[in-house]
């Protein structure tokens, strides 16, 4: 199992007491599997993604990534997890503005000490960014930025790629193209992909689909 989630609870402080965002969620993903996580706004899809990505810790429950329970990790342990095992693609791209395209793609891989220059060049080529390697994020279009983000997520060949509405900020045509690229590259690297989306159309393109409703998988 690349990912095994069992009975995960997470609540956030709200205006009238704590709000349970996740109420005993469980799921499992095998290597190379692609899963779409759907649900209406506020159903807890992004929260689940963040917990799986080690960006936040659950209140209780078990999250096993690559056989290790990351729910027990401390701050630095989670940082190492993020660095070494997971690639993320955000809706807002969230590139590092002071670095150019090439540096952004290579950044995480280099942090993790798994930099492979040839693979990075290949990635850039396949993402159609070969002409933009020396450009900074502010000089790129939205679609280009998201392709950089995908490159960054895959540059370290992580076992698990997480994507949160990766095409949410793009128009339909660009979004489809970007998703195609992502699916193709994920498949090439053999990574598992967990993608949050609210689009039925996009969800249908992934191998499996989970629906989150009111904090529970339904």
């Amino acid at each position: 199992m690349v990912l095994a989630v069992d009975d995960v609870w997470k609540s956030y402080p709200g205006e009238s007491g704590r709000i349970d965002v996740l109420r005993g969620v469980g799921l499992a993903m095998a290597a190379g599997e692609t899963v779409a996580l759907t649900g209406e706004s506020g159903s807890g899809k992004s929260t689940l993604l963040h917990l799986v990505g080690g960006l936040d810790a659950p209140d209780r429950g078990v999250i096993m990534v690559g056989g290790e329970d990351i729910a027990r990790l401390g701050d630095s342990g989670r940082a190492a997890l993020r660095r070494d095992r997971i690639g993320v693609v955000f809706q807002q791209f969230n590139l590092i503005p002071s670095l150019d395209t090439a540096a952004n793609i290579a950044f995480q891989a280099r942090l993790a000490g798994r930099h492979d220059a040839a693979w990075c060049a290949d990635l850039a080529e396949r993402l159609g960014l070969a002409g933009q390697l020396r450009q900074f994020p502010e000089q790129l279009s939205g679609g280009q930025q998201q392709r950089v983000a995908i490159g960054r997520a895959l540059a370290g060949r992580p076992g698990l790629v997480l994507a949160d509405e990766p095409t949410g900020n793009l128009d339909e045509a660009t979004g489809d193209a970007v998703l195609d690229l992502m699916l193709e590259l994920v498949a090439d690297t053999g990574a598992a992909l967990l993608m949050v989306t609210h689009s039925e159309r996009l969800a249908a393109r992934l191998g499996r689909r989970l629906h989150l409703h009111a904090g529970e998988i339904s």
């Binding site: 993020r82 969230n94 995480q108």
Partner: peptide, 16 residues
């Protein structure tokens, strides 16, 4: 914050 958050997400602790 928006400039630092991605770096954090990519695997740096807040203290660092």
């Amino acid at each position: 914050q928006p400039q630092l958050a991605p770096v954090w997400a990519l695997g740096l602790t807040r203290r660092r």
